[in-house]
C-alpha cells in the first residue's frame, strides 16, 4: 500500500469516528427550545438594555413566547411595530407601547454655573462624586464626565461640547434607565411621555436655600413657589427642600409653571 492510501484511510477513519461521536453527543444533549423564541429574538434590538424589565433580550423573547397575553410586555427598542410582529408570530394582539425617555434634570451649563475648582482625576462621574460635589459650587447638578454616555446601549445620549451637559436623542432613547442608574447625582430620570400634552419637568436638583442657590447657578431652582401658585391643579407642583417637584401623574401639561419660573428651571418637552 502506498503512503497516500494509508494517509487517506487514516484521515477518513478519524473523520468518520469524529462525526459519529459528534452526532451521538448532539442527540444525547439536545435541548428543546421553543422556535418562537429565536424568531422573536430576531425582531428585538439585541441591546440587552433591560427597558422591558427582563434581564436581557433573550429573557424577554422567552417571556413573549410563553405569555398568554402580550398586553403587559413591551420592548420600546423594537417599538410598536416590532411588538405587532411579535404578536403576529404568537397569534395574539400587542398592547399599546408606553413611551418612556430619559430626561436631564440639570440645566446648569458652563455659562450658568461657574467652575470653582478644577477636577483632575479620572473622567468618571462615579469617582468624582465619590470624592466631592463637583467642579462648580452646586453639589447637586450634572458632573459632566459622561458616565451616562458610556452606559447607554442605544447610543442615544451624548455630551454637548459647549454646555458640558448630556443631551438625549429622543429618536433613539427607549427609556431603559441605564443612564439614570449610572448618574451618581440622580440628575437623569426616566419620564413617561403622554400623547395629549407636553412633558413638564424640573431641570434642577439644587436643594440649597434660595439665597445660596442663586449664587451657585444662574438657572437654579430657588424654591420660590411661583410654579406652585401658577399651577391650576392641586398638588401637581410641590416645593420641598427649596426645590420644586412636579407630580407627573397629576400634571396636565398646561406649561403655566414653565412661563412663570423666574429661574428658567422648569422645562417642557414635546417629542
Amino acid at each position: 500500500m502506498s503512503v497516500i492510501t494509508v494517509s487517506i484511510l487514516i484521515l477518513g477513519i478519524t473523520g468518520i469516528i469524529a462525526a459519529v461521536v459528534l452526532y451521538i453527543v448532539a442527540k444525547k444533549f439536545h435541548v428543546y427550545e421553543n422556535p418562537d423564541i429565536a424568531r422573536i429574538e430576531e425582531i428585538l434590538p439585541g441591546a440587552n438594555c433591560g427597558a422591558c424589565g427582563f434581564s436581557g433580550c433573550h429573557a424577554f423573547a422567552k417571556a413573549c413566547a410563553e405569555a398568554k397575553s402580550l398586553e403587559d410586555l413591551q420592548c420600546p427598542g423594537a417599538g410598536q411595530e416590532g411588538m405587532e410582529q411579535i404578536a403576529a408570530i404568537r397569534g395574539l394582539t400587542a398592547g399599546t407601547l408606553t413611551r418612556r425617555v430619559a430626561i436631564v434634570g440639570c440645566n446648569g451649563a458652563c455659562a450658568y454655573r461657574h467652575e470653582a475648582t478644577h477636577y483632575d482625576g479620572v473622567r468618571s462621574c462615579a469617582i468624582e462624586a465619590g470624592y466631592y460635589g463637583g467642579e462648580t459650587p452646586c453639589v447637586y447638578g450634572c458632573l459632566g464626565c459622561g458616565d451616562c454616555v458610556s452606559v447607554c446601549p442605544h447610543d442615544a445620549i451624548a455630551m454637548d461640547d459647549e454646555t458640558h451637559l448630556p443631551v438625549v436623542d429622543f429618536s433613539k432613547c427607549v427609556g431603559c434607565g441605564k443612564c439614570a442608574d449610572a448618574c451618581p447625582h440622580n440628575v437623569i430620570e426616566i419620564a413617561t411621555l403622554s400623547d395629549e400634552h407636553p412633558l413638564v419637568y424640573v431641570a434642577c436638583r439644587n436643594k440649597d436655600k434660595g439665597g445660596i442657590a442663586i449664587k451657585e447657578c444662574d438657572v437654579s431652582c430657588i424654591g420660590c413657589g411661583k410654579c406652585k401658585r401658577a399651577c391650576p391643579v392641586d398638588n401637581a407642583v410641590t416645593v420641598s427642600e427649596f426645590l420644586a417637584h412636579i407630580d407627573p401623574a397629576l400634571c396636565i401639561g398646561c406649561e403655566k409653571c414653565v412661563e412663570e419660573c423666574p429661574r428658567h428651571s422648569i422645562h417642557s418637552l414635546t417629542v
Binding site: 467652575e115 470653582a116 475648582t117 478644577h118 477636577y119 483632575d120 482625576g121 469617582i127 470624592y131 466631592y132 467642579e135
Partner: peptide, 9 residues
C-alpha cells in the same frame, strides 16, 4: 488666583 485643582490621593 486660578481655581484649585482637586483630585483623589
Amino acid at each position: 488666583m486660578n481655581n484649585l485643582t482637586v483630585s483623589l490621593s
